[in-house]
Design a protein around this nucleic acid. Structure first.
Lengths: 199, 199
DNA sequence: CTTGAACAAGACAGGTCTGTCTGTCAACAT
DNA sequence: ATGTTGACAGACAGACCTGTCTTGTTCAAG
């Protein structure tokens, strides 16, 4: 599965898609843009051009639709990241290129932070499990690359890098990409340099 | 103004307080615990033991109450931080002790992340101005300490530290304090060491 | 041709949301 | 004594929310 930044943002519902896909694509955009609670079922139904019963045939509840959207978001985001860094076979290069990839994402139109951070912030401890699962899978992927790069204490290095990533996402959301990317690059370089990766 | 972690969490409405204070204290707790949109006016009114008209006499709208709560949160959080680090007159010590202070906060009962990050995540670009103002004032305070400590490029150092702080808050919210604090301490030590502060 | 599945359109129920309004009461100042 | 002020209690309006149900249409497989 390949995924561009446009795919990540979502193309919106297409008339030739079936009802379930139109609902999912519409919700995917609205939930991210407006928030989970602020987006009502009626609006999703109206914008996707679907009957209410068609919606409830495919999704038993709003919560099920939210879960499906977060699953899709996770799959697309990870696919985007892998595609964006796909040409880099050396783990050290992969890690060093992460800030540039995030920089692209921060500057993409419609960027509004991390859907999982936002969802967790909104729903609190009762947030869908995917909000934390996504972060764990990202952390595992980064730790894998740290280990393959031969860095000492790959778990600690991955935790440090993930800390910087989360911070950069929040900074970019609140103050813009420029305010986040300088610090992100510096913290990454310092962390990797300290861990033995090339500068 | 002094502020303990209990004060930061909010003591709830006391019967001897006037109506406005009871509303504000109730909303202060509920907005942080449940989120802005998930907390209805009716619930705030019921828990504060106030008439609806008394509420609307003191606050023209729910949005005005939200703004007042964020103002109060900002004042209390900054006062807590200054009090927590008050004994440290040397700027380098002040900066080095920041992760321990945040650690205490992450482990305090009822911790649910940063009210300003959460509010911004929920409301998006239309979020109250205080959500970004709070972060700017914190960044300015950190930069001031960096400058007084004689660090090179105090603005960059402050940006790096703030990035780590935001990341740690999010990590602590989603995975708990243990998952955040190790990385926070390491990134802080590395950043300060690189900037010329004592180890 | 018949049957059944998917779908569109929309009424409906029951609840919640914000915000307005009417009364009643107690404290207090003139 | 009397008017003012603040507060409590609760009805009410109008909108929005989720979820159910009915009716009619399209279309394809048997």
């Amino acid at each position: 599965m390949t995924c561009t930044l446009d795919d990540l943002a979502g193309s919106g519902p297409q008339p030739d898609q079936d009802a379930r896909t139109r609902v999912l694509e519409t919700a995917y955009r609205l939930f991210y843009r407006q928030g989970l609670r602020a987006t009502g079922i009626d609006r999703i139904i109206a914008e996707s051009g679907v009957a209410k019963m068609s919606f409830y045939r495919h999704f038993p509840s709003k919560q099920a639709l939210i879960d499906a959207c977060l699953d899709l978001r996770h799959a697309r985001w990870m696919a985007w990241l892998e595609g964006r860094l796909g040409g880099l076979s050396a783990p050290r290069d992969w890690l060093a290129a992460l800030p540039d990839a995030l920089d692209d994402w921060f500057r993409s139109p419609g960027f509004r932070g991390c859907a999982f951070i936002n969802g967790h912030a909104e729903a609190g401890p009762d947030a869908p499990a995917m909000t934390v699962t996504h972060k764990r899978e990202l952390a595992a992927r980064i730790e894998q690359q740290c280990a393959e790069a031969g860095l000492a204490r790959p778990g600690d290095v991955a935790a440090d890098l993930l800390l910087a990533i989360e911070g950069a996402i929040v900074r970019a959301q609140m103050e813009g990409a420029d305010a986040a990317c300088g610090a992100l690059h510096r913290v990454f370089a310092r962390t990797l340099s300290d861990a033995g990766g090339k500068q």
